[in-house]
Amino acid sequence: MDLTLHVWRQETSSASGSFQTYKAAGVSDSMSFLDMLDLVNERITRDGGDPIAFEHDCREGICGSCGMVINGIAHGPHKMTTACQLHMRSFSDGDEIWIEPWRAKAFPVLKDLVVERAAFDRIIQAGGYISVRTGSAPDANAIAVPKPDADLAFDAAACIGCGACVAACPNASAMLFTAAKAAHLSYVPQGQTERLGRAAAMVMTHDEEGFGNCTNHGACQEVCPKGISVNYISRLNRDLLKATLTGISVG
């Protein structure tokens, strides 16, 4: 199939960007969306141009590197699918495709479709862990974890840190990402001791990083490739309230 791409090109963070149009000819059904971009980049390079920069690594929907808004939807038209797992059989000959980076104050564009998501790491630094020193752990089976809790913890832990939730949110809030990690750790017994302090610290950093407030829009859940549920945001908010009521502050 032959497609027309309109791709956001921006040289650096400070440069202003614009859409450029490219032809993608001879694209096959079995190609992934990123294979298709590779093909276009090969041609741009051979023609002496500067290939489109986009982030990617595993190409298996697990590393969270890739991410782009495709025809207005973060990660493109398929639910529960990262851009790298989107395949060209979802498109038809003659289609026009608009491709842009995540847009959010907390995710500055570095080049073209590449954005800086280090703010996510800083949210984790604020408390997205269980404090356990290497070598100090008790036997793994010393504490039984009810299977339903373990399953819920896993569902929340499946977040790949891609940032689609932020890109889709009208407020550019990262509460789905933040809540997923807080929820994961709150469903296991090992995570209880630090639970309320963690909630308070992670949300405080979330706000400081310039992510917007959550107004229960739900757009995040729609685009999340891992199906992270907005229910975790309510859970985080309850923990946050408890933290405030019990006077747990972030030091």
Partner: peptide, 11 residues
Amino acid sequence: IDQAVAQGVPF
């Protein structure tokens, strides 16, 4: 395995 479970790895 002990270490990972203590970190909250959801095996």
